[in-house]
Simulated assay, not measured.
Amino acid sequence: MTDEAQFEEHGGCACGAVRFVVTAPPRRVSLCHCMTCRRVHGSVFGSYAMFERGAVHFSGPAQGWQSSSAARRYFCPVCGSVAFMDYADKDEIDVPLGAFDHTGVFEPTYELWCCHKEPWLPKGARTEYDEERTA
């Protein structure tokens, strides 16, 4: 049995109505400074682990809204916590790092939309993209 076959991390929203389990490591992990992430999270960036769609399993209610032409964001209708982001054109689901039950599970390797990054945040800690990731 491989490590990936044994992989499992759990998480959920603030009130516990929405829960999830991921059954494979993320494809990548990032910090996003775009204006939508800033507003959705009520913070100066969002942090996400990106998974193959089939590796993430949700339970409980989730309500969605179209946050861009390519992405739909979901949240818990009970407490309002960000639950995940889904793409029409990708086999991928983005899960916020703060929603996992354990801390320090995944470390971001890059930042995007740094054109909106707060000037007091450290620069050069990881690969930075001025806008969308190019690689």
Rank of each mutant, 00 (worst) to 15 (best):
G54P: 00
P77I: 04
R73V: 07
F84H: 12
R39N: 00
S43R: 11
F58C: 10
Y74Q: 09
R133I: 06
A71R: 03
G11A: 04
T36F: 07
G124N: 06
S43V: 05
A135Q: 08
C115Y: 09
G80A: 03
S43D: 06
A49D: 02
E8K: 14
C32R: 08
H116S: 10
S81G: 12
A71P: 03
C37T: 03
G64Q: 08
G12R: 04
K123H: 14
L97H: 04
C76L: 11
F45A: 09
F51T: 00
P108N: 05
V22Y: 02
S69A: 13
L31N: 09
V78P: 05
T2A: 15
A55S: 15
R39E: 03
D101I: 03
D94M: 14
E118N: 15
V105W: 00
G54C: 00
E4R: 13
V29C: 04
L112Y: 08
E128Q: 11
C76A: 07
S81P: 06
C34P: 09
R72I: 11
H116L: 04
G60E: 08
Y48S: 00
C79Q: 12
C13W: 00
H10R: 15
A99H: 02
G12Q: 03
G11D: 05
P25Q: 05
E132C: 07
P77S: 08
Y110W: 13
Y129L: 02
T127R: 12
L121V: 06
Y48W: 12
K123D: 13
M85P: 01
P77Q: 09
S67D: 06
G104L: 10
V40Y: 11
T127L: 15
E4D: 12
A49Q: 01
V56H: 02
F100T: 01
H116Y: 15
S67L: 07
F75E: 08
R38S: 00
A55V: 03
D3R: 11
R19K: 11
R72S: 05
Q66M: 02
T23K: 15
C79S: 10
G98I: 08
Q66Y: 02
C79N: 06
A83E: 07
E9C: 09
A88F: 15
R73I: 11
A83T: 12
F45S: 10
G11R: 03
G60P: 08
